[in-house]
Amino acid sequence: MGDLINIFIKSAFIENLALSYFLGMCSYLAVSKTVKTAVGLGLAVIFVLAITMPINWMINTFLLGEGGIFQTDLTFLRFILFIAVIASMVQLVEMVVEKYSPSLYNSLGIFLPLITVNCAILGGSLFMVSKEYNFAEAVSFGLGGGFGWFLAIVAIAAIREKIKYSAVPPAMRGLGMAFLLTGLMGMAFMGLMGIDPAAF
């Protein structure tokens, strides 16, 4: 159990998907203009990461691995299967949410299709493979990574809302400032690298 909490904290803060691997940057920069939409996208990312990570783990272990049902090394199919799982899960989640919780759909709905091409999702699955996590660790990594990404996008959206009223050189307005801010936030998050999660 302690291990799982370690992985959660590590993936949320120390190895933050957005701020230390810079994954999912496209939607991170595009959808962080207001806090409200940022919260919506952040929640959708947590949701999809937590669902696709275990599924991709099972596919990687039981279908593609040497010990899987085909008894051969099929890892070259990994990209195609992972992305297909992510795309279809996103579609499925969208339909289920639309059917059973229209209010959640109204706040998440438009962000769900964006998530298919959010590299944080595919990147999370690929990191999970390269770090050789077991099932429980993969679930914890998915939740932690999603939570960290959520924190990062909400934080930058809050800063961008404030900075709208500052005197920024015209050529730097909008996108340029967003990049600069993300760099500064990344430096701040680097300060967390010294923390040893085993101490918790």
Binding site: S20, P170, A171, M172, G176, G183, G186, M187
Partner: peptide
Amino acid sequence: LFPSAMFVIAVLIWAHRA
């Protein structure tokens, strides 16, 4: 390290737009 890539791109955007 990673943050510097952000700074370099920010400056590039600045130069490009100016």
